[in-house]
């Protein structure tokens, strides 16, 4: 398998009339993680969507190899279905095994085992987040793009996310985490998005 790679050259992003950032370049390959920081509205989510090719950059180019897994504020789970059936849809799309040990273990690890019969709309914010993480893990993508993955999670779950990202990088994956909260992962670079905001000199 080719090592995953994610590169961006001279990206600029404009939302409405406002230029959020410009001149942003990055280059990541398998085994690397990057923490994108910045307060609300600095363009973290837009950067993630540009890198996922869901949004066209105002300028610049994105170059990547490897499959993309996206975790953002939307869950992509059917609200009216029990969690088990909502996840089963993605299981069939992504073709993960139905009930093997790894899947069951992951389910326990994320504390979802007792929630499988609960309709998604009754889940709390943290539980939804964990369900979405479960979907991300099942997808088995090379490149993780995580947009505020720690929102609404308790301390234990935060540690779990950090462990999962570390595990993903250790197994040759690539992760880009946008979060205004500190996140502890060994060897993770930091990119402060406001540094690329158009300055006053412009």
């Amino acid at each position: 398998m080719e090592a995953p790679r994610l590169a961006a050259r001279d990206l600029a992003c404009r939302r409405g009339e406002r230029l959020l950032f410009r001149g942003l370049s990055l280059e990541l390959s398998g085994g690397q993680a990057l923490h994108v920081t910045g307060s609300n509205g600095t363009g973290k989510s837009s950067l993630i969507r540009i890198l996922a090719r869901l949004l066209r950059p105002y300028a610049g180019k994105v170059d990547r190899s490897g499959t993309i897994g996206l975790l953002d504020q939307t869950m992509a789970l059917d609200e009216h279905l029990p969690l088990g059936r909502a996840l089963a849809f993605w299981r069939r799309i992504d073709r993960w095994p139905d009930r093997d040990d790894a899947t069951g273990e992951r389910m326990g690890e994320l504390g979802l085992r007792d929630l499988m019969d609960v309709p998604v709309r009754y889940l709390s914010t943290g539980q939804r987040k964990r369900a979405a993480l479960f979907r991300l893990l099942g997808q088995g993508a090379d490149i993780w793009l995580l947009d505020e993955p720690l929102n609404g999670l308790d301390r234990d779950a935060v540690e779990l996310v950090e462990a999962l990202v570390a595990q993903h990088i250790a197994s040759g994956g690539l992760a880009l985490v946008a979060s205004h909260q500190p996140i502890a992962i060994a060897g993770m670079d930091v990119l402060n998005l406001p540094d690329f905001a158009p300055g006053l000199e412009a």
Binding site: L54, T67, G69, L70, D72, Q73, T74, M75, A76, A141
Partner: peptide, 14 residues
């Protein structure tokens, strides 16, 4: 679209 299904499908090449 609101729940992000179309984003996830697009990422998977659907």
């Amino acid at each position: 679209l609101e729940n992000g299904f179309f984003d996830q499908w697009a990422l998977r090449g659907i």
